[in-house]
Computed example of a mutant assay.
Amino acid sequence: MLAATAVSQSATDPLSGLVLGDVPKPERRPGWSTVRVVSSSLNMHDLWTLRGVGHPPERLPIILGCDAAGYDEDGNEVIVHPVIADPDAGRGDETLDPNRALLSEQHDGAFAEYLTVPTRNLIPKPPWLSFDEAACLPVAWTTAYRMLFTRARIKAGDRVLVQGAGGGVASAAIKLALAAGAVVYATSRSEDKRAQALSWGARAAVAPGERLPERVDVVIETVGEATWSHSLKSLRPGGTVVIAGATSGTNPPADLGRVFYLQQRILGSTGCTRGELVALLNMMDATGLRPVIDRTLPLDEIHKGFQLMIDGRVTGKLVIKEITS
């Protein structure tokens, strides 16, 4: 079968380690199911693996791809929950299992014609959701959902700042927060992406570091070092920053005086539970929300897709098609 495999890592030339070629079809193990992949999508996690960030080289080669939607062995349309873990080890929350792994970290991922995952990770794909739309949800949209509703517990009327409006998680956070009745502000270096955020309903979209019209209750932070100071300064006393990534670096100035004096909360968030993915689908059904898809490319053009991501030329999600549905 055709697959995109990480065979080496390079901080300066990550795509040099991505090989597209034929590999054996995976063998199913007890308690696992085989999925014929229709659509997947790119995530920054894939790029970090190719750059050697957070993925030890001894786990190479490995097929990349955290998101997948397709057919199970019985022909049912399914979405793959990407966190492979034991819920009991996390006291009912598989993201807290110390041995959890995102698809493509310890198990071959979704940039292939077939993959195998634990059967409990399969969720029925609703008929109102296309395969391309479904493939955008497992990582980016569920990450945003958990940040907003499980960790920050936003409610209607809350003021929410989303840093870095063009990314998959950020675009999902903007749309989900708006659907929940929040007032949303966004930042981006790109004028086009700021305009896009406004078209989705953001009250204001500003350049990174620019002062907001008011302080916010919640900051959705995935950029890290470059925006951290702005995130804390934009937060009201007693407000909450939820962080689920640090694309610009992981060593921001702590500003501990501001944190303790204004009693600000800083919460980490990683992945999602199976239940949260189901809850996200229920919310999308009720509200009509759909993911933002920048473009769709065939698997044999995956290098082009990664280059677009590296160049910052993607708004929302870039979908990879494995087969014609």
Rank of each mutant, 00 (worst) to 15 (best):
G157V: 00
L129S: 09
A110F: 10
K155R: 15
T150C: 06
L102C: 06
V162N: 09
L148V: 00
V160K: 04
W141N: 13
R120F: 14
T142W: 01
D86C: 10
N121G: 08
E133P: 10
D86A: 07
F131C: 06
G75L: 05
G90P: 11
V117S: 13
A152L: 14
T143Y: 00
A69Y: 00
A69K: 02
P118H: 01
G167F: 12
R159K: 14
Q163Y: 09
G65K: 09
F131K: 03
G164P: 10
G167H: 10
D72A: 00
L64N: 08
A89M: 13
V83D: 10
G167W: 07
R91H: 13
S130R: 11
A110D: 07
L102R: 02
E133R: 11
I79H: 01
D132A: 15
Q106A: 15
E133G: 12
A165R: 03
G92S: 05
I84E: 14
A85F: 01
L161R: 07
E77R: 08
G164W: 12
M147W: 00
R100Y: 13
H81C: 01
A134Q: 01
T142E: 02
A144E: 07
V139L: 12
L161M: 11
M147F: 00
V169E: 05
N76I: 06
I63A: 01
G90V: 08
P87T: 08
F111V: 03
D72V: 00
R146L: 02
D67F: 11
V160D: 06
D93C: 13
W141R: 07
G168K: 13
V162R: 09
D97G: 10
R120P: 12
T119V: 10
A69R: 01
V83S: 07
L102E: 03
L96H: 09
G166V: 01
P87D: 06
E77Q: 05
D97R: 10
P118N: 02
A140H: 11
L148K: 00
K155F: 03
L103P: 04
C136D: 05
G70Y: 06
R91N: 12
L60W: 14
P82W: 05
I84F: 04
L148W: 00
S104N: 06
D86N: 14
G168S: 05
D67Q: 11
I84S: 14
T143V: 02
L137E: 07
A156G: 12
R59D: 14
P61W: 05
E113N: 10
T116A: 03
P126K: 01
P126H: 00
A101N: 06
A110L: 15
D67L: 12
D158K: 07
I123S: 02
R91E: 14
L148Y: 00
V78C: 03
T116F: 06
D67T: 10
D88H: 12
R159M: 08
V80G: 02
A101L: 06
D132E: 15
I63M: 02
T119D: 09
D88S: 15
A112P: 01
L148E: 02
T142S: 06
V162I: 13
T95P: 08
L122P: 03
G167C: 11
D74M: 11
F149S: 04
D67H: 14
D132P: 13
A89Q: 09
R59T: 14
D132L: 13
A144S: 03
G166F: 08
D108A: 13
P138A: 03
L137P: 04
Y114W: 15
A156N: 04
